[in-house]
Design a protein around this nucleic acid. Sequence first.
RNA 1: GGUGGGGUGGCCGAGAGGUCGAAGGCAUCCGCCUUGAAAGCGGACGGCGGUCUCCCGCCCGGGGGUUCGAAUCCCUCCCCCACCGCCA
Length: 423
Amino acid sequence: MLSLQSIRDNPQAVAEGLARKGVDPSEVEALLAEDRRHRELLREAEALKAERNARSKEIGRLKKAGGDTEAVQAEVRALGERIAALDREAAEREAALRDRLLRIPNLPHPSVPDGPDETGNVVVKVWGEPPRLPFPPRAHDELGAALGILDFERAAKVSGARFVVYRGAGALLERALIAFMLDLHTSRHGYTEVLPPYLVKAEALYGTGNLPKFEADLFRVDGGAFYLIPTAEVPVTNLHRDEILEEEALPLSYCAFTPCFRSEAGSYGKDVKGMIRQHQFHKVELVRFAHPDRSYEELERLTGDAEAVLEALGLHYRRVLLCTGDMSFSSAKTYDLEVWLPSQGRYREISSCSNFEDFQARRANIRFRPQEGGKPRFVHTLNGSGLAVGRTVVAILEQYQREDGSVALPEALRPYCGGRDTL
RNA sequence: GGUGGGGUGGCCGAGAGGUCGAAGGCAUCCGCCUUGAAAGCGGACGGCGGUCUCCCGCCCGGGGGUUCGAAUCCCUCCCCCACCGCCA
C-alpha cells in the first residue's frame, strides 16, 4: 500500500509512477477526493467529540458537588446522536478509501525500464552457456516419464491436471535439491531457516498484497477460514507483522522450504504439459527485512544468493530486470532469473527477486525503531526464490540429459543423492 | 471437542464506571556526578490521525452494545495459557 500522505504531497509524481504500471492516473484524483471528504467528516465529528468530552467531565464534577445534571445530560445525549451519524459516514468513507488504496499497486523504482509486457524486460547478465547437445534435446516430461521418475498420468488419476508424482530417483532428486539449497543459504549466505505454516489467515495475505486483488489465484480451505500459501513469502513476511524491530537487528534474513499452492485460474492453455506450471510445487524462499537506506544493496545480495544455487548446479541462466508491465503488484523492482531449457530453446523463470520497499511493511505494519531516536519507521521487505525446486528438476533433466536418455547429476548434488552420479 | 484462567505502552505489571492514555518497575535517551565507566541523582520517554511545535480526536486483543461518561459493565469473535478428551 502506498502512503496516503505521500499521495497528498506529490499527487503528480504518484500519478506518473502509476501510469508507468498501467494504472489510470485519474485514480489518484478520485482517491484524493475521497480523502478530502473523509477528513471533512473527521474534523466535524472531532469538534463535537471534544465538546462532548468537556461536558461529560462537567457532569462528573457537578455530581460530586451534588448539583443537578439533568439538563446537561440531555444536551450531551443529543450531541451523541449527531456524533454517531457522522462517525458512521466517516467510517464508510474510510473503508472506501482504504479499499481503493489496497488495490493500487506499488510504484516502480526509477531504475525500472518501461515496457508493456515481458518483451520490455532487459537482460542484465548471462551466466555460462547452453550445453552443447549433439542430438535433439528431449523435454523434461518425456525424459522423466521414460526414466520412470516422473508420473503425470497417475498424478492426473489422483488429482487431475497440473500435478505430478515423483518416483524413486525423482523423489530423491527433489529432496536432495531442497536440502542442498537450504544448506547453502543457511551455512554460506547467513539465512535463518524457518518452517512456517502452510495455511494462513486472510490478514496475512493482505499483508503481502495477495488480497484483496488476487483471490482467484488462491486455494481456500475450511469455508474461507484459511488459505493455502501460494509462496512462503506470505507466512515468513508476516512473521513480524505488527512488530517494531530494533534497528541493529536489521537486516533479518530468513529462508524457508515450503510447498506452494496456486489455483492458476485463467492460465488454461499455458504450459499444460510437464511441470512448469503446477497447482502444487516446492520452493525454497529467501526473505529479508532491511533498513530502507540499504534495501537496494540487499536486493543485489539476495539475487546473488539465488544465483549461487544455479551456479553451484552448473545451470546456464540469465538475469533479467523486469519492466513496468511485467512486474508484480507489490514490487518496486524485480529481477527474474531465467534458466535455459534446451527442449524449448528459451529461458524460463526459475526465481523472482523483488524489493517491495515499504509497500508490504505498511500493509503488515512492520517497523523498526531508529537508533538515533524518533518515531518507528517502516522496514523494507524483499524476497526471492532460491529456487523453485520443481523447475530446477526440469532444468537439470534438460541441461544434463545424454543421448541415451540418462541424465548426469550435477557434482554438488551427488553427496545428497547417496553418491550416485546418474539418473 | 470440554472445563478453567488470561490478553493493558518496547518489556513486566497495577488499575474494577468520572480529572486514566493509564501507577510502579525494567529497557532506552538527555543531563549532573566521575579521569572514564558503573552506581546514584534529576529529567524525558507509547501509537495512529486531524489545516499537527499550542491544541483536538482515537487507541487498554477485534467488533458491537449499555451509559451523560467505559481499560473498568454486557454481548460476540479471535488469540494465549493450564488441565481433560482425541490424535501423528
